[in-house]
Simulated scan of single mutants.
Amino acid sequence: MGELPVTGTDPRFPGATILPFEGKAPQIADSAFVAPGARIIGDVTIGPEASVWYNCVLRGDIHRIEIGARSNVQDGSVFHVEGPRPDTDGCPTILGQECVIGHMAVVHGCTVEDRGFVGMGAVAMDDCRIGEGAMLGAGALLSPGKRIPAREIWIGRPAKPFRTIDDAQAQKVRFQTERYCRLAQRHMAELHG
């Protein structure tokens, strides 16, 4: 993971804004993809082969954000955190490995375990946990403190259990992960000509 220039740019990720905040600079693996227009601020770690797509905002100013290897955060998504308060140490935003975050999702101070899925336009709030291989459906709202068990799908506003994920659905998530890893390589090749 490279050092961050103070100017807010990183030659590995042309067109992205990558900024330190209060002495903490984003740490981004060389094999990751950060698209033009993305904003990565503060205490953010992005793992190998992960991708953060166009116009995403990851703001690690009052706690940390971690994006695991081979996970993707799709266009327009927003990641933020909950800072320490008198009653809590706060809530980082942690994304495990091989997770899929759909377009325009909001992930705020919660944990998504390995191979978890957050659908397009969904909202996951403070101190939530989306279990391994679990899914928060498109447009759903997971209210603070809720837990989705491994390999369950929750849908609705507020989100409620819908069904268990079968092997075919789990395979579709793995396919999306692979697709986004390959697609990120193609976008990087275009940007670096």
Results as ranks from 00 to 15, higher is better:
residue 154 W to S: 05
residue 172 K to R: 15
residue 98 E to P: 13
residue 50 A to K: 12
residue 78 V to C: 07
residue 108 H to R: 10
residue 67 I to S: 04
residue 147 R to Q: 06
residue 23 G to D: 01
residue 80 H to T: 13
residue 159 A to S: 12
residue 142 L to P: 00
residue 121 G to A: 01
residue 183 L to H: 07
residue 17 T to G: 02
residue 79 F to K: 04
residue 68 G to E: 14
residue 103 H to I: 12
residue 37 G to D: 03
residue 134 A to V: 08
residue 11 P to Y: 00
residue 88 T to C: 13
residue 14 P to K: 06
residue 111 T to G: 04
residue 135 M to Y: 07
residue 90 G to Y: 13
residue 79 F to I: 13
residue 159 A to M: 12
residue 40 I to L: 00
residue 9 T to E: 05
residue 94 I to L: 06
residue 69 A to T: 10
residue 29 A to M: 02
residue 78 V to A: 05
residue 114 D to Y: 10
residue 182 R to F: 10
residue 42 G to Y: 00
residue 178 E to Y: 12
residue 22 E to V: 03
residue 111 T to C: 02
residue 47 G to R: 05
residue 176 Q to C: 14
residue 123 V to C: 09
residue 101 I to K: 06
residue 106 V to D: 08
residue 109 G to L: 06
residue 177 T to V: 15
residue 64 R to V: 07
residue 183 L to W: 01
residue 83 G to M: 13
residue 128 C to Q: 14
residue 75 D to S: 02
residue 104 M to T: 11
residue 51 S to W: 14
residue 66 E to K: 01
residue 182 R to E: 13
residue 50 A to D: 15
residue 15 G to W: 00
residue 24 K to N: 05
residue 38 A to K: 10
residue 41 I to F: 05
residue 33 F to W: 13
residue 30 D to A: 09
residue 150 A to H: 04
residue 11 P to C: 01
residue 169 Q to I: 14
residue 150 A to N: 05
residue 144 P to W: 05
residue 132 E to G: 04
residue 90 G to S: 13
residue 191 L to N: 10
residue 160 K to L: 14
residue 16 A to K: 01
residue 185 Q to R: 11
residue 106 V to A: 13
residue 179 R to T: 14
residue 125 M to E: 08
residue 130 I to K: 08
residue 2 G to Y: 08
residue 177 T to H: 12
residue 105 A to W: 02
residue 96 G to W: 09
residue 54 Y to C: 03
residue 186 R to K: 02
residue 104 M to W: 10
residue 141 L to D: 09
residue 29 A to I: 03
residue 173 V to A: 08
residue 131 G to I: 04
residue 147 R to N: 01
residue 73 V to D: 08
residue 73 V to Y: 04
residue 86 P to S: 08
residue 14 P to T: 10
residue 18 I to A: 02
residue 140 A to K: 09
residue 121 G to T: 03
residue 68 G to R: 12
residue 101 I to A: 08
residue 125 M to T: 12
residue 146 K to V: 06
residue 91 C to E: 11
residue 177 T to Y: 08
residue 137 G to Q: 01
residue 14 P to L: 11
residue 3 E to Y: 03
residue 135 M to L: 07
residue 22 E to K: 03
residue 5 P to F: 02
residue 184 A to R: 02
residue 70 R to H: 14
residue 31 S to P: 09
residue 18 I to C: 03
residue 35 A to S: 15
residue 60 G to V: 00
residue 150 A to D: 10
residue 193 G to I: 12
residue 85 R to V: 15
residue 37 G to F: 02
residue 149 P to T: 00
